[in-house]
Design a protein around this nucleic acid. Structure first.
Length: 272
DNA sequence: CGGGTTACCTGACGGC
DNA sequence: TGCCGTCAGGTAACCC
């Protein structure tokens, strides 16, 4: 579920909570694997380390310590919770980070599509999950880049926007929302986009993501921030999960279809 | 390599 | 109340 705005919101929440650079007292793994095996040495590698900071790259969170980086992906249902004192562990709490100051961070992930791994500082660029990631949409993404990457490609633009090797952070909700605002149909073959359309798409990507971050992300089903609160951007969704409803601009019924296995929404009149 | 489909997993929801 | 099929903010592993 979490796309860039949700991961960014979680990252900012973690940064705030960890700004006193706490020492990790102990890490407990409640299961050995999520989608992939969790390194068995992870608890030992992290215990005693100081959390220097938390960063986001694409939809990944990176917890920096002096000697190792904790890499985390939320998958579809992952969340970090600051447990209240004496709070019972949930059925899907898989990893606990116990801080020396007594606080406990829990990684919760019912579907277990998330990821926990370790990276040696300086080795980020060669990590298999990070090495092929594309450009950050809010840092270095441009119409020129989209134009170049879309040439000679037949995939629908909606699928291209979700391709993390080209531009990162855009998932199924924001792809539809961006293309509606850009006035481009999600089914358009990428190679047919004009320079002007690429410019409109890139502008819409930036606007939508910035607005969504400002709103604290979108909560459709599961997504919650660190405090368990919902985001607010779902109130600004203009097409996502609105099939059959009148378009906010022209009142034509919003259409939907499955593309590359994912539900996709658009206005057949406003988007060409 | 590009493009498409399937699998991974749990839970919520609607229909019968 | 079940039970069953469908679907869900992601991505990797297959296939052709």
């Amino acid at each position: 579920m979490p796309e860039l705005p949700e991961v960014e919101t979680v990252c900012r929440g973690l940064e705030k909570i960890l700004q006193n650079k706490p020492v990790i007292k102990r890490v407990r793994l409640l299961r050995k694997d999520l989608r992939f095996p969790i390194p068995p040495r992870l608890p030992r590698a992290l215990s005693g380390e100081v959390i220097i900071g938390v960063r986001r790259r694409a939809k990944y969170l990176l917890f920096d310590t002096e000697s190792v980086i904790l890499l985390n992906h939320l998958g579809m249902t992952g969340s970090w919770r600051l447990l209240a004192r004496n709070e019972e562990l949930g059925k899907h709490d898989h990893c606990l980070i116990e801080l020396a100051d007594g606080r406990v961070l829990a990684f919760r992930d019912p579907r277990r599509f998330g990821l926990l791994d370790l990276i040696k500082p300086g080795q980020e660029a060669v990590h298999p999950r990070l090495k092929d990631l594309g450009v950050e949409p809010l840092d270095g993404f441009s119409a020129e880049l989209l134009l170049v990457k879309s040439r000679k490609r037949k995939v629908p633009i909606k699928v291209l926007l979700m391709n993390q090797k080209i531009v990162v952070g855009i998932g199924n909700i924001y792809a539809s929302e961006v293309l509606f605002r850009a006035g481009v149909r999600p089914t358009r073959s990428s190679g047919t986009l004009t320079r002007g359309e690429c410019a409109r798409i890139v502008e819409a990507v930036k606007k939508v993501l910035v607005s969504a971050i400002r709103a604290g992300g979108s909560s459709i089903r599961d997504y919650r921030n660190l405090g368990g609160e919902e985001g607010g951007f779902q109130d600004q969704h203009l097409v996502y999960e609105r099939a059959g409803e009148p378009c906010s601009i022209c009142k034509t019924a919003i259409k939907s279809k499955v593309m590359a296995g994912r539900s996709t929404y658009w206005c057949p009149r406003c988007q060409s």
